[in-house]
Amino acid sequence: MSDPFKGIEPMVYQSKINVPYSWWAGDTASKFYITLRDEKIILGTKCETCNKVFLPPRKVCPSCFTENREWVTLADEGTVLSFTVARRRFAAIPNNKKVPVIWGLIKLDGADTAMLHYLDEIKPENVTIGMRVKAVFSEVRQGTIRDISHFKPVQ
């Protein structure tokens, strides 16, 4: 069969999917974000059956399918369970973050699960698994995960 594209540039149709979307945060995340924004306090939810504290807080225990009824105030310090450093400007990285960006998986004292956030005020090569870090809250807080600016090493 002859090549239908011989001498022709294949046509490419340029387009975009860009649909505004609002996520209703629900009562659990609302309480978490309001407390974070107004009091600089990080809350988790607790399953009384499993005796486990979840961060990010959610309404249903992922292990036993019961409702997490209790709220627990967590420390603003914790341990780095893992981390990575973006060396390239990946498209998903927010515009106001400079590469290299360091993300950590951080288990706050008092929580049984870990949360994702940024690590900063440290060079990428000095980050280690097991290091202790502390939350730095943003000056301007708007009820988002970035009301925590980042975590920094505990001195």
Binding site: A25, P56, S82, T84, P94, W103, L116, I145
Partner: peptide, 19 residues
């Protein structure tokens, strides 16, 4: 609501798992 805004993706998530 909790994670997406931090800007991780499949590569950085898996890099964290690799660590």
């Amino acid at each position: 609501i909790y994670e997406r805004g931090l800007g991780m993706d499949m590569i950085t998530a898996c890099a964290m798992q690799a660590s």
